[in-house]
């Protein structure tokens, strides 16, 4: 993402309005930077779900299965009756299944975050500005070839407080 127009906004409301205008004008591949988590921006960009839930579920199932294998499997591999209980005693084993379910759900979740956000990265996006971690929102409109002027004019029509043309 190196060639395009970057607009900076000082309110969430102005950013949402700009997203709507740009998308209406056909710019559907815009990148939005926000200093805060904002479900409103996701809605404006028509994003409704995240695949990380599949990872979390996979982690949960893997953890629970691991809990069964570790407890029942090792009890059967070395059969030694203790406390007068059956070799495979579900009530105490449920604790381990639960703990491993929770553990792997959390670990898979963090991995999912890294995979889907393509992090970690060393070099930040050229469109990124440090003000985006303070109090400004940013919208980057990628432009290939001709069209910088039109995109710039469109961004200037929004509530942008600063507009830069890159590339």
């Amino acid at each position: 993402m190196s060639s395009g127009v970057l607009g900076q906004y000082d309110t969430l409301h102005g950013t949402l309005d700009a997203i709507a205008r740009l998308r209406d004008a056909g710019h559907r591949d815009i990148e939005v930077f926000s200093p805060i988590p904002s479900p409103e921006i996701e809605e404006a960009m028509d994003i409704h779900s995240s695949p990380v839930r599949v990872w979390a579920l996979t982690g949960a199932i893997t953890g629970c299965t691991l809990g069964v294998l570790l407890t029942a499997g090792t009890s059967l591999a070395y059969p030694l009756v203790t406390q007068g209980k059956p070799l495979v005693s579900l009530p105490p084993f449920v604790v381990f299944m639960f703990e491993l379910t929770v553990l792997l759900t959390g670990i898979f979740g963090l991995v999912a975050l890294l995979v889907h956000t393509r992090r970690p990265v060393i070099n930040l996006d050229p469109a990124y500005r440090t003000s985006f971690s303070v109090d400004r929102w940013g919208i980057f409109v990628p432009v290939n070839g001709e069209g910088h002027a039109a995109a710039e004019a469109l961004v200037r029509e929004t509530a942008a407080v600063d507009v830069e043309v890159q590339g």
Binding site: I41, S50, H116, F132
Partner: peptide
């Protein structure tokens, strides 16, 4: 960098 994609996955997880 606070992109919408980052916040989207971050909020869910």
């Amino acid at each position: 960098q606070g992109t919408v994609s980052e916040w989207r996955h971050y909020r869910r997880i």
